[in-house]
Every structure is written in structure tokens, then in C-alpha cells.
Design a protein around this nucleic acid. Structure first.
Length: 428
RNA sequence: UCCUGAGUAGCUCAAUUGGCAGAGCAUCCGGCUGUUAACCGGAGGGUUGUAGGUUCAAGUCCUACCUCAGGAGCCA
């Protein structure tokens, strides 16, 4: 028994591989069977002279995705796509397959998404999901090695936390709960308890967005640091992004090749990142002749234009307070600005990080809650954090799917998660 | 919610001015001892998204609806 991924260790040996038939080509008295086992792909060569007439004929009728076990000798061969191939001595069918819908030719997005449970068997999807795996592990290792404590926040949240328009309501016994759209508020409580913390889980937004950057269910990692400042948050985000990209480049070369990803832009991702204020960013856009109203948030095309100015991710900080959430701390030198930051990925992948320093003053926070017309009673527990030993603190959220889409060079974030949830798609 | 575009064979797409419904792949049959989305020969496969309308004649023109895609707003 061997896995294709480490087939090179078995050169010259006879091994058994358990997998599925990915593709088949025939040439008279030879069958070329591309077999996949989840770890990789290998070409198995079956000769009529070796296996005999009956088995050879049977193998000629195997459908794509037939589950099978093959036995054969491993041999290095320059003609084989993976550098190695197997000379088949025995083949056993474990589960048959006929008329597999995803053929080796091209398919449309809708067709593939309807068959996402099968689509993930393809080579490109293997590559993307392996990169995702590496990104997630790199994120966890990054925080774990720096003394951050994983403290996950609830998925069910009570009513009316941040305005309900983008929240998914769910029936919760005799009341209504909402699926979380951020672990932010609980993260702050956790930071006051444990110092430096992070949460990492799915978040939900009922936004009616149909763009290549949006999912209704996506995974977000959110660190929060007690006694942290805006600059600390930017430093941390910069180090995190750099670390994750380096890890993907190091561990997933083969996958990035499969995806035909140009590695050069990723290799430029090193600290320090350029940092510009919102005002400076607005100036850049104005200089580019882009019609832009000062005081508003940047749109998708604005972000792309801004990112094109730099050779690596760019941190845009100090957005107008009016565009950001009620818990953002105002800049002491310019109270109309907030101590906030967005980090924009290159190549049009948009905002991958959003965060900042939080409001730690009780009276000002109460005022903001009133200004945003939020129900104070729902925030009493959050206000307690300012009543009992309030300290400066900062953090951010990073969207995993956007990071994976950027690293893989994909057109759309829907391929970065096994089962994407989109505006009009809840199945499979 | 708004803007733009697209729905034709299992899949990806053609079909000229409104005039016989086509190809490649997949499937089935046959051929080929080194194929790389193999190739070669043959066969089967259609309520042209749905419902109306105009016309001698509609895949093609008109109306409504449905589905999908891309984008805007909003966001990670």
C-alpha cells in the first residue's frame, strides 16, 4: 500500500495504490490509466501482454471515477506527467462509475457548482484546497507561536448587535438569534481576560453581494491584543500576511504550478508594507483622475487602483470615523478620523484585512451607541469591559477566502472553500 | 434592489437577412504497443429556459416571467 504523493520512495518496488480512475487513454495493446488517490495523480500503464486478454478488455471499459485498486511496479519515466508511472500487474474494481458528469473538457460555472461535491475531485480544486489547508495552518501556527490564545466566539448571537440588515436570523427556541458576522465584541472580552487572543471560525453576512470577492459564509481569523495600539495591529497584520504567503510558497509549489500562478508578485510580499493614510489614498485617487467623494469608503475599483500603486499589500489607515463601526477609537489628533486600518491585497483582490484600535472610554462609547441608535441594554456586557479595568486594545479580521484566492490567483473566491455559500446558492 | 449580458444534444459552443437543427467532447461499436484534455472510423442522442404574440415560415423578431453570469451599493 502506497500513497501517490510519496511514490518516489517506492521506485523499483511493486506497490498497491487505492484510488479512482481520473482519465483513460488507449493505444491498441496498452491502456494509460491516470489514477488519483487524494494525495496525487499517477499514470498507470497496463499492457495486454502482462494482464491478459480478459482483464485488458475489461479495463478498456472502465468509466471515469471508477474506484479501483491497482498493483504494479513503480518506475521513473520522463514520459509520465508526474515523473513516475506504474506498470500494472493487477487491477480490482471497488466501485463502478458510469457517465461521470464532469468530463475532461471545459464546463460552465453553474454546472460545476451544482456538482461541487464532484468538482472537488479535479486537479485544480485539489490544488486550491491544499493551499487553503496550508493557509489555515500557517495562520494558526503564527498566532500559537506568538503567545496568542485561541478563544473562539459564539456563532449564535443575540438580537440587535450591529444592526440586523446583514444578519441571518435563525429560530432559537422562543426567540430569534443571529448568525455571527464577526467575533469582534466577544474577542475584546477575551483579550481583557487572556491578554492576546484570536478566534477563527465561520462568519455570516446576508449581504446581497454578487461579486468575485463575496460569500455569505466565510472564514475569518480575528486577533485582539490588550494594551495594543493601531500601529501594533498593523505590525501584526503585516507579519501575519508575510508569514502566510511565505509558507504557501514554500509548501505548495506544485499546487501553485498546477494553478499556473505567477509566483513573482507573491515573492515580493515582505515587510514593511507601504502605509498611507486615508487622506493620502484619497489624494492618489484624485491624482489618477478618479471621481471620488472625500469622506466615503473606497469602492472595489478604487481599491484596485490604489493597490496598483504598490508592489505589495498596502495598509490604508485613519478612515473617517463616519465610515467605520461604532467601536472604533477616534484619532486623538483628528477626532473626525478613526484609528482604523484596511490592508488591500495586490492584483485587485481587495480588502483582506480590516481592523484598528477600539474605543476604550466608557462615556464616548455610550455616546457612540446612542448616535448609532443601538439598544444600550444589549451592550451592557460589552460596556462592562470599559467599567472594569479598561485598557487600549486593538485587533483585526482577515478573510481566509480572499487570502486564498489572492495566493492562488483565482478569478473568484467561490473556489477557495469546499462548499461555497453564495447569494443564490445553498446546495450542495 | 439596480445596471449589463447569456440561456440550443449529457457538457462546451455554432447556426449568415426570419428559410432543412450542426460540430467537438462524453456514451456505445470498431482500429491502433507510449498516450499526455491521445488519435482514426462509425452509431445513437433535440419540446432551442417557460408562457404568450407577430409571420406563409421563429433558435433568430416582440411582451412577460424564470434561471445563471459579471458589476454597483455593502463588506473580509
Amino acid at each position: 500500500m502506497a500513497y501517490i504523493d510519496d511514490i518516489a520512495q517506492h521506485d523499483g518496488q511493486t506497490v498497491t495504490v487505492k484510488g479512482w480512475l481520473h482519465n483513460r487513454r488507449s493505444s491498441g495493446k496498452l491502456h494509460f490509466l491516470t489514477v488519483r488517490d487524494g494525495t496525487g495523480f499517477i499514470q498507470a500503464v497496463m499492457s495486454k501482454a502482462t494482464v491478459g486478454e480478459t482483464q485488458f478488455a475489461q479495463a478498456g471499459h472502465l468509466g471515469q471515477e471508477t474506484a479501483l485498486v491497482i498493483e504494479g511496479a513503480v518506475r521513473a519515466d520522463a514520459r509520465a506527467p508526474g515523473g513516475y508511472e506504474m506498470d500494472v500487474t493487477a487491477l480490482e474494481v471497488v466501485g463502478s462509475a458510469t457517465d461521470y458528469p464532469i468530463t475532461p473538457k471545459s464546463h460552465g460555472v453553474d454546472f460545476l457548482l451544482d456538482r461541487r461535491h464532484l468538482w472537488i475531485r479535479s486537479e485544480r480544486q485539489h490544488a486550491v484546497l491544499r493551499v487553503r489547508h496550508t493557509v489555515i495552518n500557517a495562520v494558526r501556527d503564527f498566532f500559537n507561536s506568538r503567545g496568542f490564545i485561541l478563544a473562539d466566539t459564539p456563532v449564535f448571537t443575540p438580537a440587535a448587535c450591529e444592526g440586523t440588515t446583514t444578519l441571518f436570523p435563525v429560530s432559537y427556541f422562543d426567540t430569534t438569534a443571529y448568525l455571527t458576522q464577526s467575533g469582534q465584541l466577544y474577542n475584546e472580552a477575551n483579550a481583557m481576560a487572556l491578554g492576546r487572543v484570536y478566534c477563527f471560525g465561520p462568519t455570516f453576512r446576508a449581504e446581497k453581494s454578487k461579486t468575485r470577492r463575496h460569500l455569505t459564509e466565510f472564514w475569518m481569523v480575528e486577533p485582539e491584543m490588550a494594551y495594543g495600539t493601531l500601529d501594533d495591529a498593523i505590525d501584526l497584520a503585516e507579519a501575519l500576511i508575510t508569514s502566510v504567503v511565505a509558507r504557501a510558497l514554500d509548501e505548495r509549489q506544485r499546487e501553485l504550478d498546477t494553478l499556473e500562478r505567477d509566483r513573482e508578485p507573491l515573492e515580493r510580499v515582505r515587510t514593511p508594507f507601504p502605509r498611507v493614510t486615508y487622506d493620502e489614498a484619497a489624494q492618489i485617487l484624485t491624482d489618477q483622475g478618479r471621481p471620488f467623494e472625500y469622506g466615503g469608503d473606497f469602492g472595489g475599483p478604487d481599491e484596485t487602483l490604489l493597490a496598483e500603486h504598490f508592489d505589495r499589500p498596502v495598509a490604508v489607515h485613519r478612515y473617517p470615523a463616519a465610515t467605520k463601526a461604532f467601536y472604533m477609537k477616534p484619532d486623538p489628533e483628528r477626532p473626525d478620523l478613526s484609528l482604523s486600518v484596511d490592508i488591500l491585497a495586490p492584483e485587485g483582490y481587495g480588502e483582506i484585512v480590516g481592523g484598528g484600535q477600539r474605543l476604550d472610554d466608557l462615556d464616548l462609547l455610550l455616546q457612540r451607541i446612542r448616535e448609532h441608535e443601538l439598544p444600550q441594554e444589549a451592550f451592557e456586557w460589552y460596556l462592562d469591559l470599559r467599567r472594569y479595568g479598561s485598557v487600549p486594545h486593538a485587533g483585526f479580521g482577515m478573510g481566509i477566502e480572499r487570502v486564498v484566492a489572492w495566493i492562488c490567483g483565482l478569478e473568484h473566491v467561490r473556489e477557495t472553500i469546499p462548499y461555497p455559500r453564495l447569494l443564490n446558492r445553498l446546495t450542495p
